[in-house]
Design a binder for these strands. Structure first.
Lengths: 241, 241
DNA sequence: CGATGCTTTGAGGGATATCAAGAGGGGTGG
DNA sequence: CCACCCCTCTTGATATCCCTCAAAGCATCG
């Protein structure tokens, strides 16, 4: 397993060039580890946190709480992701961040330490900035997905994104990756009712391209799945390969 | 009418503190003006532009083009907005930017000039960064809006956001502001069919709280409209007031 | 082994999409 | 100056996808 620093740097270097001194500076930033349980909030909606976190193990999600307590999941985050980087320069968080699975681990960095490094090593700041910009692209894709596609294509597209990102984070083994969410959460992500999630899932299973059960996502036919989803990974801005 | 520099700075100063020297540096960046017609693309999906733009007059939108040519509008931008700031640090644009109305005017800045200023005046970079982060918050709100609300609340929420941002940009006069889009575009924003747009609009008109016609948005009863929409402007991160 | 939470299936209803066509308004050309 | 066309808005009728309500399987756990 990678160290905290390796996990973080692998992600940043997927899209940004860092000189040895940039890398060394980032490696030098102190942090502490925090383990969180399933459905436990790491940061609450409306918080003004003095720290930000990087996912090290397990998975983490962001969500809005709407009137009436209804929940809308916004994004999911794997090892190396930085789900609340924006709090570095932003007063109040408009959403919460929670852990999904048992034993998720995040690294906690003090904003002041990060800001000090960014001031001396601008490339570090730019790399983090890019993280937040890729975030933006993922959100835009989610708008289109949840607005312009039917339940089937919508779910397929979501599975494609998760699987693609997991494979880039070396988290795919034997054509499957962890996706520790319940069907109800899938519904709160895609904006469809639980019953429809279950039926859409069954329909997708029957295509033989994908299966999702017991918190694992299994892709049997990537070509077929991307065709159903009209998935093009361009927006994720990974370097080719 | 404000100058290009005043327009830009008013927007940045709504959320960021800039010292006189930061402000002076930003004022010194050269730019050119570009006038664009309705539905004309300013930047195309997939472009790698060496410039970014600030809206000066009129309105501008971002959109995805999906398979089959279907269009999904992602966001709308008023005077002072910076709809493609992310191209400063990002290779390829995942969406297009287009003008909405006749005679829209944007200021065009060379990336290299902006980067030079940001390198010497970090506060300028941070202010632009914040712009992109607020963008992110707006996108997140759109995900929730288009996923978790019915057509009526969804449209009301969209109107609330546009009206609120327009009022902060001093673009509201006599309870109304320009929103130069067609009903079909409203549908491509909210993810609902044109016929439903028309009927939902009629239903909202009948509440007496809002009217949208001929490219103008008129709000007669802000309290009632925000109640229908469950609108809370917190996510837009304007300073209080 | 009952309780609890998640998944699965059935039935029916409602919101929204699709199909179709007329009305209104502005521009253009004969 | 009128006729025509095109674009957008509006309204009606019908279809369908998805939601709500309801309840039964199935696993895990105390």
């Amino acid at each position: 397993m990678l160290s905290v620093q390796d996990t973080l740097l692998r992600k940043l270097k997927a899209h940004s060039l860092l000189a040895p001194e940039d890398e060394a500076a980032l490696r030098g930033v102190s942090h502490r580890l925090r383990e969180v349980g399933p459905d436990e909030d790491i940061v609450g909606q409306g918080d003004v946190p003095p720290v930000s976190i990087v996912v090290i193990e397990g998975e983490v999600a962001r969500y809005h709480t709407l009137y009436g307590g209804k929940r809308q999941y916004l994004s999911f985050h794997l090892a190396g992701d930085w789900p609340d980087a924006q709090t570095l320069f932003f007063a109040r968080l408009d959403h919460a961040v929670c852990a999904l699975n048992e034993g998720a681990v995040v690294a906690v960095f003090q904003h002041e330490h990060l800001r000090a490094v960014m001031a001396r090593f601008p490339a570090v700041g730019q790399a983090i900035w890019r993280e937040t910009l890729i975030d933006g692209a993922i959100f835009r894709a989610a708008i289109s997905n949840n607005s312009a596609r039917n339940a089937r294509a919508r779910m397929a597209h979501f599975f494609c994104e998760i699987f693609f990102r997991a494979s880039r984070a070396a988290l795919v083994h034997e054509q499957s990756t962890a996706l520790p969410i319940r069907q109800s959460q899938l519904g709160e992500t895609l904006g469809i009712a639980l019953v429809t999630v279950n039926r859409t899932l069954r329909a997708l299973r029957r295509t033989g391209s994908v299966d999702f059960r017991d918190g694992r996502l299994r892709v049997m036919d990537w070509q077929a799945l991307t065709a159903i989803a009209e998935f093009d990974p361009e927006y994720l801005n990974y370097r080719a390969g």
